[in-house]
Nucleic acid binder design. Structure first.
Lengths: 210, 210
DNA sequence: TAGATTGTTAATCGATTAACAATC
DNA sequence: TAGATTGTTAATCGATTAACAATC
């Protein structure tokens, strides 16, 4: 057995594991039972050595000479990424991006549950996107507390983002995906991941200009 | 002087440079003329040493003892990221995510121009999001050719993504931001960046579970 | 068995951080 | 001048790749 199977995974590794998981789900849906590190690597776009090195860090159980059982591996990755249980999250700001997230992201397949969505606009409050009816922002504090929400996606305009963020943290939210155009100031115990869409385009622009 | 100022930047560096650029634009909008590596680092969330090391790789011109002139630095980063000129791009699939991109991403501030948006749904074709009226997917080939579009954001359902992608590549598109839930198969000369939103949430979930 | 593919360690490579001289 | 901050190199750290024995 040995070492650090239970230590936390580095960011590149956990990132890749979650992408392997999506690939596995797709393979399973196509009736594939087994996959080799080679095939996984071809699909992800890295190499077999890295795939095996990544999987070596979790409780994975490949069969030497036959590759990995898709179902087992999917479960091993889910376990390594702590996807068991049901983490509750909310979306703040139900413009087009908030709607896209509420409507199309398959949280329930990955141990998450979208428990609430919020907006301040009276013409949006009460509408339903995905499974959820939009609540007024004024009910944010009570809702987060009552539904024990621990994560949030922030999809509000730049001016509103820091104040929304402060409120979320005050109510005990531990992780925030920040889609707003402002960087957030947060205490150390809160995890913020910046997802400014323009940056993806800047990267795309740079890479295609080489 | 010396070495590799004109060589291409590594992915982590170009990534961070684009985020520094956003921070600089914000500082400028607040009337800040000058910024130190320390302040930039505090805002980005790394350390001053890394900021200087990153900026060292481009034609930046800080003033020892006073920091960097925001305007100069912004221009130096723009130049390093090849943001000069006007790169034309399109969005395929005008559901909520396509609309969010067309409406809220400030392409024109960063050397890009959204030249077309496409959908197959007749109830969406002809509507206007951002500056652009949605075109029918049937006109995709002609439009990409005529408007010399070189980049695309793919926001279509999983089933449609590979065929849309093939068409884009056939018409000469060099870079694709893939928001669809499928990994794409592309020839080596095409750059694809996967942006599956669920992966951001998986990462958030993992980090907040530690 | 022979062939394929994993598990695992070691080697390489690249990215981050530290340090400090240069200088505004 | 003294203090602040950059520019730049070297040291450290971590991530990726290579290699191959184990084994199904």
């Amino acid at each position: 057995m040995a070492q650090n199977k239970s230590d936390s995974l580095s960011a590149p590794v956990s990132q890749r594991l979650s992408e392997y998981l999506l690939i596995l789900e797709h393979l399973k849906s196509q009736g594939q039972d087994v996959v080799s590190s080679r095939v996984l690597a071809d699909s992800y776009g890295n190499n077999a050595s890295q795939v095996r090195h990544d999987l070596f860090q979790i409780e994975s159980t490949g069969s030497r000479s036959h590759g990995y059982d898709c179902k087992n591996l999917s479960e091993a990755i889910r376990s390594a990424l702590n996807l068991e249980g049901e983490k509750r999250l909310c979306v703040i700001g139900m413009g087009n991006l908030g709607r896209a997230i509420a409507t199309h992201v398959p949280f329930q397949n990955y141990g998450m549950k979208l428990s609430a969505t919020f907006d301040i606009d009276p013409t949006i409050i009460g509408r339903k996107f995905g499974q959820i009816t939009v609540s007024p922002s004024s009910s944010l504090e009570a809702t987060i507390r009552d539904k024990k929400i621990t994560m949030a996606a922030l999809c509000v305009p730049a001016e509103k983002s820091q104040s929304s963020c402060d409120l979320l943290i005050k109510m005990g939210v531990k992780g925030i995906l920040n889609y707003s155009r402002m960087r957030l100031k947060v205490p150390k115990h809160v995890y913020v991941q910046d997802e400014q869409i323009i940056c993806s385009f800047l990267q795309l622009s740079y890479k295609t200009s080489l």
